[in-house]
């Protein structure tokens, strides 16, 4: 189990390191976050999914608070 932990941890660290390098290189070479979000919103409607998730999360928190006896 320890060996599996080390293997998985190494893979995760390598992927995060590679992702960080890619992001850094993208920013260095003139990348723009706003341009990417605009393109993704236009193609995949990310704001709809984000609003739906935010609504579900707020509803869940409200239910949990209602279940609390002191409340």
């Amino acid at each position: 189990m320890k060996k599996a932990w080390s293997v998985v941890g190494t893979i995760v660290l390598v992927m995060i390191l590679l992702g960080g390098i890619c992001i850094a290189v993208g920013y260095v070479t003139g990348g723009s976050t706003e341009a990417v979000l605009t393109r993704m919103e236009a193609r995949y409607h990310l704001s709809v999914y984000f609003d739906a998730y935010l609504h579900w999360f707020q509803d869940l928190i409200a239910r949990l608070v209602a279940l609390w006896p002191a409340a």
């Binding site: 893979i11 995760v12 660290l13 992927m15 995060i16 590679l18 992702g19 960080g20 390098i21 890619c22 992001i23 850094a24 290189v25 993208g26 920013y27 260095v28 070479t29 003139g30 990348g31 723009s32 976050t33 341009a35 990417v36 393109r39």
Partner: peptide, 15 residues
């Protein structure tokens, strides 16, 4: 550069 930004984000999320 924007492709690299999305690619780096995808790698971090997959990790």
């Amino acid at each position: 550069a924007n492709i690299l930004l999305v690619l780096g984000t995808a790698l971090v999320v997959l990790a």
